[in-house]
Simulated scan of single mutants.
Amino acid sequence: MACQTGIRANDATKNAFNKGKQAKLRLIKAVVKNEELTLNYEYAGTANWRDDWKATLPECVDSFEPCFILFRMNTIHEWILITFADDRAPVKEKMLLAATCATFKSEFGQCYIQFERHITDRKDLSIDSFESWLKTKSDVGPMSEVEQELHNAQQERATVAHTGPQHMKGVAFPIDRNAEDALRKLAKGELNFVQLSVDTLNEAIKLEGTQDNLDAQDLAKKISRDKPRYTFFRFDHNWEGTIFNSVLFIYSLPASGSSIKERMLYSSCKGPFLDTVTRHLGVEISRKMEVDAKDDLSEKALLEVLHPLPQESPKHFAKPAPPRGAGPRRMITKV
């Protein structure tokens, strides 16, 4: 494993990452400066990615300044990560760029990156050179072990995304960075309310709102009754002398106010989303609830979900009493 530098993206770079994942940027260029991943150039672009490539590359690159370039082709899952380090650049800066690459991908989100390419000469950034290289990737030519693993992961994600709700695996949309941060804080107890939505346009799960101390009796006001939502609520309560810190997952799916496509996507995303939340973000869910516009979300209703009353075992059918004056029962034996 390569040694990591601990260098993180600054606020301007994080903001550019978020805009990029909303398809608001075509190109993002970042450099390592003052021990930070610093935004160096961004380009909003047009509807034609080839024209945008010609307008920005390789002109925005300095031969003596190693950098990371993120270029979006079409959808938010078709980003190309280019690490550029010219042979003439200082060795220290090239080493620093290489040691920060894994952190850069983690900060942006590995699931958004379709291909990676390392370039050492500006002329290899021409559109002709890039399309020639892209064709070899499309034809699945010889690949290294790392490239093969990346290709297999991309193929699997594409299969899941295209099969959609017809398969039990569901649709694995990426979780926005702000949403991930909020869920990690929920797991640590720093927040007790986190609400998320599925961005059907950009195919991602976004953060809608958070609170650090929402009272249970105010929860119902926060649940939209006309839009689907994923809501996590940490319910700290006393039950029969024991303190519980229970996390409820509330899946609100109203029958009206949203399109069929939206409801289908919420339903299909739920399984993979909860798997990521519990496996990788540390959230332990005590109970799952599915509610509509008419369901009760009072504090009493939450307690009934978390601590259901024991059900009485069904009574066996009792034989009726014999009629009065019938005398003792007689045993009849067949001969």
Rank of each mutant, 00 (worst) to 15 (best):
R8A: 05
A9N: 00
T13N: 05
K14G: 01
K21G: 00
V32K: 04
K33R: 12
E36P: 10
T38V: 07
E42M: 07
W49F: 13
W53L: 00
D62E: 15
C67W: 00
F68I: 08
I76T: 15
H77I: 08
A85Q: 04
P90Q: 06
K92M: 13
K92D: 07
A98S: 15
A99R: 15
A102C: 12
F104L: 06
F104A: 05
F104Y: 09
G109T: 04
Y112Q: 03
R117F: 01
S126A: 10
I127V: 12
V146F: 11
Q148R: 14
H151L: 06
Q155D: 01
G164D: 10
P165V: 07
F173H: 05
F173Y: 13
P174V: 09
D176E: 14
N178Q: 13
E180M: 10
D181G: 04
K185F: 04
L191M: 06
N192F: 07
F193C: 04
V198R: 03
Q211V: 01
N213L: 02
D215E: 15
K222S: 05
R225N: 12
P228V: 05
T231S: 08
S246F: 02
I250G: 03
L253V: 11
P254I: 09
G271R: 11
F273N: 02
L281M: 06
V283I: 03
E284I: 11
K294S: 13
D295T: 15
D296N: 13
K300I: 14
L303S: 10
P308K: 02
F317E: 09
A318F: 10
K319D: 07
P320F: 05
A321Y: 07
R324Q: 12
M331G: 04
I332N: 11
V335L: 09
